[in-house]
Design a protein around this nucleic acid. Structure first.
Length: 1009
RNA sequence: GCUGAAGUGGUGGAAUUGGUAGACACGUUGGACUUAAAAUCCAAUGUCCAUUAGGACGUACGGGUUCAAGUCCCGUCUUCAGUACCA
């Protein structure tokens, strides 16, 4: 009988569906185990071989846990809202719901053919109204909550309202907007209800706020930072503006400390925890307030203005020689003196043109302007000049810094550039060239009451003194910012929100879901409203409690609905709870189900979600815990990041070379020229993507750097000399690796233009080549699989040619789960051959050949060492090594001609998580009527591995020379005697007397002479 | 720059607590079977020297600890990923 994998796999896939083999029950005597994959976005391209990697691993683990007697929840679903479907809709006019449905069908077919043990009865789709109904509901709960810093918990907004009416807000410690006014209980009750609502909005966990976005008028949409290149849109090169928009935000910053602390309670990789820690960015330091010195020429100054700064090094406060405000800082306009007004305004003008990204990219250029104002040092009372500079970011801390040039490189560079004094406050060291490093900043000097103190004591003392004079306090700052929750898109969850007099109102739970309205086009409106602005039936009738036509909007009962939709991470922040009770109409999941399944025991997915999905989910879960909706504090107990499977792409590239005018060599000498070449090559900033010739700014920067290195007075000397600093391979286009291509046909002329006609080209080896001849070659590169790179390997054809079991085994065999690794289809013949060998171990021409004879000692030894290794491997997620173990076992048993049922039955159970189809088939041929998934995992018995002898490696001075078979029960002395008397030992020693003989019984013998 | 991970044959990768480096595969070479091919099976395969016996060298590089180091310690280099005027 042949191993007809296609038939066998189809047969068992059908069996599993018909018998609901993998359906999980919400109650059981067995212990529970919840294994989850990050659910996929169903893209139009379908699955490639990289996608199932994590699913295979989790499926093996889920099946293993079932064998081990657990009630396993292993569901799957789709993160089906998202941009690609919307883009496709814009281009084709097809409704995203239709294309999404199509894509899901493809995904499901592809997933099914790999033989996953998903419980599909629990499938969720984020774009399903029955699902997003509950996403909307959670949004409402966030709106109806505030964060109490005293209890460190979210509470219903009502408790805040009652605090306000009994004591005002002065004693309330809450996470809220920075600019909340203070009021008493009397004030509160005197406020209009609109004013009360406005104040409450500053406390809610989701709130409306003015946020700066990248607005592209030509495209009529908001762009993400990555969609902007050099200040213009990536698509179409249209100008992009910073624009303030009112958007929903999530007060995730309220949870900074808990999100940080919670990391210690979960089993994630260190690198992932570290990313989240960095993202949360806790820094401990102090706030210090510097009084602005009134200036007689400024009429408005009243002497009460203060510059607040955050610093992590309050011990350096006597090293302050200036202060720097972000150009956007609100004090700037108030304190600037008339003499400096023009300069300051010109500076603000020029910096506002640059995007935040540009500012951050260009770290080297130092710029700033003096405001003319001075602040008073809190202790020395010296006047300190106040500058503005764009190296200070408005968005972090207070948007102002106390500049300590001796201890901070940026302050140092700024001070040098503008000739500001650099007072030293540390003992020892040298600050003639650069600021002190962290290591050098130890003992404080020149600092009044801090003199002689080590920095950590000085920090405490400085904070104490600041608090004493009421000009500062200890403070912890977090980098984590609230996240914008609005998207100007169509294909996302609509907000359950309508507006009365501009104030948001939540729609009652009873009327959810608020379904996405129909629109005739998926683009923003001509007036710049989001796509939902095109909907005709998109108003809320507060009396009838239903969505009605916009035409009916009036002042009394019909109001406009929110036009934004929720971002992609909304639906994915809580879906793991929905699987627990996916078909519940009354609640997002029943209390019983939530209590039984608790949270995810094992979560597998990509590391690209480290600071997105994995942080937002933790935030929502903590919130839901606070409000009593769920019982757990963390969503994912253990998390594993599967590595990416990469494809090999082929492309045509044009060789470009660094080329310099010969004058450079004259000017700088050949030695420096060589140095320059190395710098070009190692300086990745300059060898950026594409052709540097088109990036004038980068070219200019390069010239400055070169001039500096070459010791030239200024970059002008190089003006006509340096042209393009390469070599790089400029990719011309990707090709299908197997295609023949007429490379000559791609040749183009005048690529560099006349600007560079005097240049000489220097090749990769330093040789001079003809600059006008472009050279095209075909290159190969291992990179992420992508349709546009023609390097995608499709699992369908693999399943057809080799079977799903081969695919599963091979993906695991490829290497450690967490590692990035290239796909190489050639290797699959190895595992496929192994499956055939396995088949032949059980089945011959006449059928199953198993016998009920007693197993030999060798058989038992092979089986039990396999059980032991495989169990250890699965527990440690080392799936690649267990595949090798299976190969070794089958090789050994084949050589031993084993047909014993008591060996072959447990062996196939061991393998069934990895290769479930062949396992089911052999299991049933062995005479079993029920699925192999119900069989118990074989039990390891150590007695079968007990050896009576050991093949000792005999080393001389640490080098193994030969091995010697000795009985296990010999003691040290007996082993030593046996080894020393051996003729090979004599031969090695050649009569020398050993200085020392190390004997480790059961391991090794080492003879030192 | 900072943080994290990694660097082992032609390739993917093994190696438990420091104890026989290169398991298991792919590829390559030779052979068997075949008219031939595929499939299958057998053998060899880290590099170098040697007819053999055997030997030398080998886990990015340089040191160190140890009877013994891929594994531990110090320093250096390289690659990948994340992050970045975060005060």
């Amino acid at each position: 009988m042949q191993y007809t994998f296609n038939d066998i796999e189809a047969k068992w896939q059908k069996y599993w569906v018909e018998n609901e083999t993998f359906k999980a029950e919400n109650q059981s005597d067995k212990p529970k185990y919840y294994v989850l994959d990050m659910f996929p976005y169903p893209s139009g391209a379908g699955l490639h071989v990289g996608h199932p990697l994590g699913y295979i691993a989790s499926d093996i683990y889920a099946r293993y846990k079932r064998h081990k007697g657990f009630n396993v929840l292993h569901p799957q679903g789709y993160d089906s809202f998202g941009l690609p479907a919307e883009q496709y809709a814009i281009q084709t006019g097809q409704h995203p719901a239709l294309t999404t449905e199509e894509n899901i069908k493809t995904y499901r077919r592809q997933l099914d053919q790999i033989g996953f043990s998903f419980d599909w009865s629990r499938e969720v789709r984020t774009s399903d109204p029955n699902y997003y109904k509950w996403t909307q509901w959670i949004f409402i709960q966030l709106y109806e909550s505030w964060y109490n810093n005293d209890t460190q918990k979210a509470e219903p907004i009502e408790t805040l309202m009652s605090k306000f009416s009994s004591e005002g807000n002065t004693a309330v410690h809450a996470a809220c907007d920075a600019d909340v006014e203070t009021f008493s209980a009397e004030d509160w009750s005197s406020f209009s209800s609109k004013k009360q609502q406005e104040i409450l909005l500053q406390y809610r966990l989701t709130y409306l706020a003015e946020t700066e976005v990248n607005w592209c008028p030509a495209l009529g949409t908001v762009l993400a930072n990555d969609e902007i290149v050099n200040g213009v849109s990536e698509r179409g090169s249209h100008p992009v503006m910073r624009k303030k928009m009112t958007q929903w935000s999530m007060r995730i910053s309220a949870y900074s400390e808990r999100l940080l602390q919670g990391l210690d309670t979960i089993d994630w990789t260190d690198s992932l925890k570290e990313s989240q820690r960095n993202w949360i960015g806790k820094s401990i330091g102090a706030m210090a307030n510097f009084k602005v010195i009134p200036n007689v020429t400024l009429s408005a100054v009243d002497g009460s203005r203060e510059v607040s700064v955050f610093t992590t090094r309050p011990d350096t406060i006597f090293g302050v020689s200036f202060m720097t405000l972000a150009p956007e800082h609100e004090l700037v306009s108030q304190i600037t003196t008339p003499e400096q007004k023009d300069a300051v305004e010109a500076y603000i003008q020029s910096t506002s043109k640059r995007s935040e990204r540009e500012r951050m990219a260009d770290v080297k250029t130092i710029s700033g302007v003096f405001t003319g104002a001075y602040a008073e040092h809190p202790f020395s009372k010296e006047p300190i000049p106040i500058w503005i500079g764009d190296y200070v970011l408005a968005g972090y801390g207070t948007g102002a810094v106390m500049s300590v040039p001796c201890g901070d490189q940026r302050d140092y560079a700024f001070a040098k550039h503008f000739n500001i004094p650099i007072p030293n406050v540390f003992e020892g060291g040298d600050i003639s060239e650069e600021a002190f490093t962290e290591k050098e900043k130890t003992i404080i000097t020149n600092s009044d009451f801090l003199n002689g103190l080590p920095y950590n004591k000085a920090m405490k003392r400085a904070i104490f003194e600041l608090e004493k004079i009421g000009q500062g306090e200890g403070k912890t700052n977090y980098r984590l910012r609230d996240s914008v929750f609005s998207r100007q898109r169509y294909w996302g969850e609509p907000f359950p929100v309508y507006y009365v007099n501009g104030m948001p109102q939540m729609i009652d739970k009873a009327h959810l879901p608020i379904r996405l309205p129909e629109v005739e086009k998926y683009l923003p409106t001509e007036t710049g409203e989001p796509p939902l602005g095109r909907a005709d039936v998109w108003a809320w009738d507060a009396k009838k409690c239903s969505v009605v036509s916009n035409q009916l909007i009036d002042d009394e009962a019909v109001f406009p609905l929110e036009l934004n939709t929720m971002p992609g991470w909304a639906g994915s922040s809580w879906y793991f709870f929905r699987y627990m009770d996916a078909n519940n109409d009354l609640d997002f999941a029943s209390e019983d189900a939530l209590k039984y399944w608790e949270n995810v025991d094992l979560y597998i997915g990509g590391s690209e979600h480290a600071t997105g999905h994995l942080l937002y989910s933790r935030f929502w879960v903590k919130f839901m815990k606070d409000r009593g909706f769920v019982g757990v504090e963390e969503p994912f107990k253990k998390l594993i990041n599967q590595g990416m499977i990469l494809g090999t792409s082929a492309f045509v590239y044009r060789l470009s070379y660094m080329f310099l005018n010969p004058k450079v060599e004259e000017a700088v000498g050949s030695k420096i020229l060589k140095k320059l070449q190395n710098i070009y090559i190692s300086h990745s900033e300059f060898i950026s993507k594409g052709d540097l010739a088109s990036d004038k700014d980068a070219l200019k920067r390069l010239k400055n750097t070169l001039a500096e290195i070459a010791g030239l007075p200024n970059a002008d000397t190089l003006e006509n000399l340096i042209v393009v600093p390469l070599p790089i391979h400029v990719k011309v286009q990707y090709i299908n690796a197997s295609d023949e291509l007429d490379i000559a046909g791609l040749k183009t002329d005048g690529e560099f233009g006349d600007d560079y006609k005097d240049a000489i080209f220097i090749g990769e080896k330093g040789d001079i080549i003809d600059g006008n001849s472009d050279v095209y070659k075909v290159g190969r590169e291992v990179e992420k699989m992508s349709k546009s790179k023609y390097n995608v390997v499709n699992p369908d054809s693999i399943c057809e040619d080799y079977g799903a079991d081969s695919l599963r085994l091979y993906e695991m065999f490829l290497g450690p789960l967490e590692q990035y690794k290239p796909w190489n289809t050639a290797g699959i013949t190895g595992v496929h051959g192994f499956l055939k060998k396995l088949w032949k171990l059980y089945v011959d021409d006449t059928g199953i050949k198993v016998s009920d004879t007693d197993p030999s000692k060798d058989h038992l030894k092979t089986l039990h060492k396999t059980i032991k290794k495989v169990e250890e491997d699965i527990e440690s997620f080392s799936f690649n090594t267990s595949v090798s173990t299976f190969m070794i076992a089958v090789n050994e048993l084949t050589a031993q001609k084993c047909t014993s049922r008591s060996i072959l039955e447990p062996l196939i159970v061991l393998m069934s998580p990895y290769a479930p189809h062949i396992a089911e088939e052999l299991w049933s041929q062995l005479g079993h009527n029920s699925s192999i998934s119900t069989a118990a995992f074989p039990k390891f018995e150590a007695k079968h591995l007990v050896e009576s002898s050991k093949n000792y490696p005999i080393s001389f001075n640490g080098k193994m020379r030969f091995t010697l078979e000795l009985p296990m029960d010999l003691n040290k002395e007996e082993i030593e005697k046996a080894v020393m008397n051996h003729e090979k030992t004599m031969a090695q020693l050649e009569g020398r007397i050993p200085k020392k003989i190390i004997v480790v019984p059961g391991k090794i013998v080492n003879i030192v002479d």
